[in-house]
């Protein structure tokens, strides 16, 4: 009986020591949390989360000031990744901040544009080119679809157009098994 107890105690000690060693030895010294969160956020920089950009939101999450379900462009998948990273429960996107939409890019109707440069200033990623009193246009590959340029335009010439699928961006679908009735 005593031997058994001693053995158990010895095993517990050894295992404890091993675990302790492992936690020191294999400690993850990766990026700080904010960077990791920021890497998950979609970088649309739209501010729908209530923060002026993805990084501030990441900071807020890291500080525990914001919840993980406030970013509509990131959508469910983004929330899932955040939940994974932070070891939290997944929760659906909070309606308060917006809804998930298919990706779109801004298009400026060049006939209507008056060259006011307001949209340039609104664009968080400098995706609009143009100068004062010149026609403005959106550099499509750079546009994140944040819609921030839409409201400031005094002549409402900016529209959001969904990005069409091309042969390059087309994706194979998840294999769904056709369940057919056997005749």
């Amino acid at each position: 009986m005593l031997t058994a107890l001693l053995i158990m105690a010895a095993i517990a000690l050894v295992l404890g020591a091993a675990l302790g060693f492992a936690s020191i030895r294999f400690k993850v010294v990766g990026d700080p949390l904010v960077e990791k969160i920021d890497a998950i956020l979609p970088q649309t920089q739209c501010g729908q989360c209530g923060y002026p950009g993805c990084k501030p939101y990441a900071q807020a999450i890291a500080n525990g000031e914001a919840d993980i379900n406030q970013c509509p462009p990131g959508g469910e998948e983004g929330i899932r990744k955040l939940a994974d990273l932070l070891g939290r429960e997944f929760k659906p996107l909070s309606e308060e901040f917006g809804v998930e939409k298919p990706k779109a890019v801004a298009r400026i109707d060049e006939q209507t544009c008056i060259g006011c440069t307001l949209c340039i200033q609104a664009c968080p990623v400098d995706a609009i080119v143009g100068a004062a009193k010149q026609m403005h246009t959106v550099v499509e590959p750079l546009c994140t679809g944040c819609e921030l340029c839409v409201a400031p335009c005094p002549v409402d010439c900016i529209t959001m157009e969904p990005v069409a699928e091309t042969v390059e961006t087309w994706k194979w679908k998840y294999p769904v098994i056709e369940i057919r009735k056997r005749a």
Partner: peptide
Amino acid sequence: YYRYAKSEIWARERETRAADGARERFEFR
């Protein structure tokens, strides 16, 4: 399944590239 996984991974890589670009541009701005 492999075709699906490959095209998903490619799509994600595209997205990450785009996001990295956007982050950089945002930070520069």
